[in-house]
């Protein structure tokens, strides 16, 4: 039997093996670092059928969130305002604006404006808006400074772990109910301290078991 391979083959095999092992380690580590959930920008920002500016309405004009989203403290769903709500003002203000053409059409045809939903939770996750709002969780906690956004985009990951972070340790995110829609609220004391007092008073106990949300 003759040698099938040259003498240096065994050294080469070990070299290649080592290189592959190091490469795999670096790739795995890199993926873990770059792909870490905390590194993923939510940033979902679809184009809406009407170029509506939250900054103008909620920020500059100072309209309360609940003027339009009027069910957030009563229902599990947050209402998207109907065209009628918009027309309360826009039948007078900027009544002829080209930008608002789709709105007027929808109003006349009695059909909703096809707004694109931005903050979507999966079907298997049950979320109750009123429970959160009435407990004193501000809009800003999940939706960010909408009053500063011309076009709304998603700023929080809305992942399960992100929900749980607050459910496990809610104090810092709880404020008196009257300030829920005040997105730029600045407490004079430690917010966690205020939160703890409210938690005791309202007996708030966010669920951390599976069936709390997956019903």
């Amino acid at each position: 039997m003759a040698q099938l391979f040259p003498k240096k083959i065994d050294l080469m095999i070990r070299g290649v093996g080592l290189a592959v092992a190091i490469g795999a380690g670096v790739t795995a580590g890199g993926m873990l670092l770059l792909h870490h959930p905390k590194k993923i920008e939510p940033g979902y920002q679809p184009t809406q059928p009407i170029a509506y500016s939250h900054k103008l309405h909620a920020g500059n004009l100072g309209m309360d969130c609940m003027y339009c989203h009027n069910t957030v403290d009563k229902s599990s769903y947050a209402a998207i305002p109907s065209s009628q709500t918009c027309m309360n003002c826009h039948s007078k203000v900027k009544a002829q604006s080209v930008v608002l053409e789709p709105l007027r059409k929808s109003y006349e045809a009695n059909e909703p404006v096809p707004w694109v939903k931005i903050h979507r939770l999966p079907d298997y996750a049950f979320f109750n808006h009123s429970a959160h709002v009435n407990s004193g969780v501000s809009c800003v906690t999940c939706h960010g400074r909408v009053d500063q956004m011309i076009e709304v985009k998603q700023v929080q990951p809305l992942t399960m772990a992100w929900c749980l972070e607050c459910h496990r340790n809610p104090a810092a995110h709880i404020r008196p109910a009257e300030f829920v829609t005040k997105l730029d609220w600045k407490p004079e004391r430690d917010p966690a301290e205020i939160g703890r007092e409210i938690i005791v008073k309202k007996k708030i106990n966010p669920p951390v078991n599976c069936s709390g949300c997956h019903r």
Binding site: M1, A2, Q3, L4, F5, P6, K7, I9, D10, I13
Partner: peptide, 13 residues
């Protein structure tokens, strides 16, 4: 693995 070894030089390996 050791693909090259003196034993393989033996004609009756």
């Amino acid at each position: 693995p050791k693909l090259h070894h003196p034993l393989f030089n033996y004609s009756g390996a």
